[in-house]
Design a binder for these strands. Structure first.
Length: 475
RNA sequence: GGGACUGUGGGGUAGCUUGGUCCAUCCUUCGGGGUUCGGGACUCCGAGACGCCAGUUCAAAUCUGGCCAGUCCCA
């Protein structure tokens, strides 16, 4: 087998190779940006979805599903939103042989699909809050180079849409979403920063947007999710009104929360190494792989023991794979390391005699797990693996930022830059030009970094009102 | 939107300048056999490709035109 490209020097090549060789996605489908989910990739996706569902449902959100096609008339109601998505929607203009009277948009996101119905559902303040989510595919006509998971035209999309009684309740919902994402990110072992996007870069139609960004090498970042406060920007055009306790008619305040399979890409990008993918146990298609090591004097014994142990672990809900293929043990080690399995159990004659399996986690740490306490010890190893993975990712995360004091320092950045910014759009654009990227915005939570005392805005030199902001080159 | 480049088995490639050596090279993958098996085994047999459509020519992977697809750069 040929070595993977160097992750640091040729990140994109490395990423594409890992996704391909680990068999996470098949990109040979005949439409650009629409890839096939493989069996292995689907396992990861389902685990990802399970984490999202658990976290969002814990906050009182419920699943719904709206249709994929949106009538042009509904799509066109909110002006800013249309402006933002016009250039990237797919249209359905024919039904069979006849042209449609009302053309249909293939949802790029579901505001305009849901909100006419929300207007029917919400009548009274007693109907609020309305917190619903769906996990569906959405379509965007992406013109740039597409990449598996991170930039696709058919998006596996998680979207929560809510209606709240007033702005304060909507703000509280945004905070609740931020907390829900914090819980999800823990399962992904992904450190990130929630960032309030600048005015010119917020979601089309939003009052404000908070996005989650992660550093992915050099000055590059990847947005892995976002939460938006819409205020009444959609509820007015879509007439989502309720009768308040005092008898008055009020428009709801709305929020949304969006995530996608991009998270899978982020997990590969952040945790992966020279050997391939590395999955945190919550997402791993298999948490444990068992490699039996045959021996000539006891044919079939290792395989039998492997299957027995696997059955015990599966009975406890573990996702386990026993590699019974004809390859030699060494080849299997390489394969499952490439595919990112957190824990490997090796089982041969020695292990049978000692009644304990050799265990090697994906960070290369070798221990033993006794047959008698198998379930408990495997659980311990996985918890420890996740802890160490998070620690490693956090250390790399912290090392990905550096403060830039002047615009000049932004040129040719090798890090995500932290700069003082006065909040003026003109200064923001100066920063973007200097780094040849984007001003991501201002952190919504305190950065987990040791920062010096803030100085003057790097754009205009004004000290007044300067806040830390992040500048990077979004992937 | 403008420009440059590239399309060869499942993946990656050689061949293209100078048409014939090519029923197309090598690696990998895949199917089958044998010997193996504690970190990517060896060996034998077999399968599998010139993006599409025209044109030039005795002869096209190679030259010409159109189309399609993709990649990169610029706006």
């Amino acid at each position: 087998m040929v070595e993977l490209p160097d992750k640091r020097a040729k990140f994109i090549d490395w990423y594409l190779e890992v996704v391909d060789r680990a068999d996470l996605s098949d990109k040979r489908y005949g439409v650009k940006g629409m890839n096939v989910w493989t069996t292995y990739g689907m396992r990861a996706r389902r685990n990802l979805d399970a984490v999202m569902v658990r976290a969002i449902e814990a906050t009182g959100s419920e699943a719904v599903e709206f249709p994929a096609l949106i009538p042009e008339t509904d799509f066109a109601k909110e002006k800013e939103h249309i402006k933002g998505f016009d250039a990237q929607v797919y249209w359905v203009t024919k039904g069979g042989l006849s042209d449609l009277d009302v053309r249909l948009v293939l949802r790029p996101t579901s505001e305009t699909a849901m909100y006419p119905t929300f207007a029917l559902w919400v009548r009274s303040h007693k109907d609020l809050p309305l917190n619903v989510y769906q996990i569906v595919n959405t379509f965007r006509y992406e013109t740039k180079t597409t990449r598996p998971f991170v930039r696709v035209r058919e998006i596996h999309f998680f979207e929560e849409h809510t209606c709240q009684v007033d702005e304060a309740a909507a703000t509280a919902r945004v905070r609740s979403n931020l907390a829900a994402f914090r819980a999800m990110a823990e399962a992904f072992a992904l450190p990130y920063v929630p960032i309030r996007r600048p005015e010119w870069d917020k979601f089309a139609g939003a009052h404000y947007s908070v996005a989650f960004d992660i550093p992915v090498g050099g000055a590059r970042t990847l947005q892995i999710g976002s939460v938006h406060h819409y205020r009444q920007n959609f509820s007015v055009p879509y007439a989502i009104r309720y009768e308040a306790a005092d008898g008055s008619q009020e428009y709801v305040h709305q929020t949304t929360f969006g995530l996608s399979e991009r998270l899978l890409g982020a997990i590969v990008a952040v945790h992966g190494d020279a050997k391939g993918a590395v999955f945190p146990s919550a997402i791993a298609p298999f948490e444990v792989v068992i490699v039996p090591i045959p021996s000539a004097d006891a044919p079939g014994a290792a395989e039998r023991t492997a299957s027995e142990l696997a059955d015990r672990l599966r009975a406890g809900g573990r996702r386990v794979h026993v590699d019974l293929s004809e390859d030699r043990p060494g080849a299997k080690y390489y394969r499952w390391e490439l595919k990112g399995v957190p824990l490997r159990l090796e089982l041969g004659k020695r292990e049978a005699e000692a009644r304990s399996a050799s265990a090697v986690d994906r960070l290369g740490r070798r221990t033993r797990v006794s047959f008698d306490r198998l379930e408990a010890e495997v659980a311990e190893r996985l918890v420890e693996f996740d802890r160490a993975l998070t620690e490693k990712a956090t250390a790399e995360f912290r090392a990905s930022f550096s403060v830039a004091r002047t615009l000049e320092e932004l040129a040719g950045s090798e890090r995500v830059r932290v700069v003082a910014w006065c909040g003026q759009e003109a200064c923001g654009h100066r920063i973007e030009t200097a780094i040849d990227g984007a001003l991501l915005g201002t952190p919504e939570e305190e950065l987990p970094l040791e920062l010096p005392t803030i100085g003057a805005c790097v754009g205009c030199g004004t000290s007044e009102g300067a806040r830390w902001a992040l500048a990077a080159q979004p992937l």
